[in-house]
């Protein structure tokens, strides 16, 4: 997709988004509430029209050849989209018919996906009797049952318990590996993006502010943080500064905070240096920055006012753009 712009009236939800997802990749889209993740997915999945720009899936333009693009995609929407009156199996049957899966193939496909998300027992109960997690699993099953080439998952694990969430990661990775399925997913769970995405785009105010692998994103914060407890932080700091092996060093109450690459190798070295100088070390801790740290540092601390008026949003957009400069 190139230069995607979407306006709702005067409000610009997407302000020139461009990225490319490679075949067989699990691509993560992260961003605060209202950043434009769902809007991006809606455009790519042909459910809303774009204002300007161009987007295509396997060279099928999502505006000009909607039906061709639709054939290639599967989607799990952020909001529920099941027929609650029908049973799980009936929902899948309806889906199969819409995608032209018939007869034996249909039965097989339904059984296959029900088994994968472990809903065989509940398949013939009305969906309104399902728990939230079961509904979500059914939606995921439905999303890939017609063997799409690209699967869009808009917050697939929202509201699920950790066990179910991990199960769903497993399905996602399995599908990606076994069926060579390209996946574009959004999430607010940073460890989720970290665990399964091969690349991550962080978007805010309708723009991509960073796009990279999880590792590189974390490295961009300057590396690991080591904390050292010692009775003589000043002297240790002087020693460490002198050998210039480490990044930034800060002093705190009875200790030092050191930011450096490759923290696990740095710790023995620091202890050795301290020992040589006769300084005793009480404890050491090592913290790798998490994706969450990256996320916060890139998108700021402010809570997103979901109910903010368009004008306010527009202003916020403008300010963000002015201060941030040109994003990649």
């Amino acid at each position: 997709m190139r230069n995607l712009v979407k306006r709702f009236g005067k409000f610009t939800a997407l302000d020139g988004i461009s990225f490319e997802v490679k075949e067989g990749e699990i691509f993560g889209l992260l961003g605060p509430n209202g950043a434009g993740k769902t809007t991006t997915i809606s455009i790519l999945s042909t459910t809303i029209n774009l204002t300007s720009g161009h987007a295509s899936i396997y060279n099928r333009d999502v505006v000009k050849s909607k039906d061709d693009a639709r054939k290639l995609i599967g989607i799990v929407f952020q909001d529920p989209s099941l027929d609650e009156e029908l049973t799980g199996r009936e929902n899948l049957d309806f889906h199969a018919r819409l995608y032209g899966i018939k007869g034996n193939d249909k039965r097989e496909a339904i059984d296959r996906v029900l088994k994968l998300v472990e809903l065989e027992d509940k398949a013939d109960k009305q969906v309104k009797t399902y728990s939230g997690g079961m509904k979500r699993r059914l939606e995921i099953a439905r999303g890939f049952m017609h063997k799409p080439k690209v699967l869009f998952l808009d917050e697939p694990t929202i509201g699920l318990d950790p066990q179910t969430r991990r199960k769903i990661w497993e399905y996602i990775v399995k599908l990606n590996k076994k069926e060579k399925l390209t996946i574009l997913l959004t999430t607010h769970y940073m460890e989720e993006a970290d665990a399964i995405c091969s690349r991550i785009a962080i978007i805010d105010h309708g723009r991509i502010i960073r796009l990279d692998t999880a590792e590189k994103l974390k490295d961009s914060l300057g590396g690991d943080v080591i904390k050292i407890g010692t009775g003589n932080p000043k002297r240790l700091m002087a020693i460490l500064k002198k050998c210039k092996l480490f990044g930034s060093i800060k002093e705190f109450n009875n200790g030092l905070e050191i930011t450096t690459n490759n923290g696990s190798h740095a710790i023995p070295k620091i202890i050795e240096l301290a020992k040589d100088a006769g300084i005793d070390v009480a404890y050491t801790t090592l913290n790798r920055p998490t994706l969450e740290d990256v996320f916060i540092s890139l998108t700021g601390n402010a809570i997103r006012e979901e109910s903010a008026s368009s004008a306010d949003q527009l202003k916020a957009n403008q300010e963000a753009r002015d201060t941030r400069g040109k994003p990649i």
């Binding site: 999945s45 042909t46 459910t47 039906d67 061709d68 639709r70 054939k71 995609i73 989607i75 929407f77 909001d79 529920p80 989209s81 099941l82 027929d83 609650e84 889906h95 819409l98 995608y99 439905r142």
Partner: peptide, 13 residues
């Protein structure tokens, strides 16, 4: 309102 319309509209029919 229940979102099922999206399931219908996104399909290639």
């Amino acid at each position: 309102q229940f979102g099922f319309m999206k399931e219908i509209l996104v399909s290639p029919v």
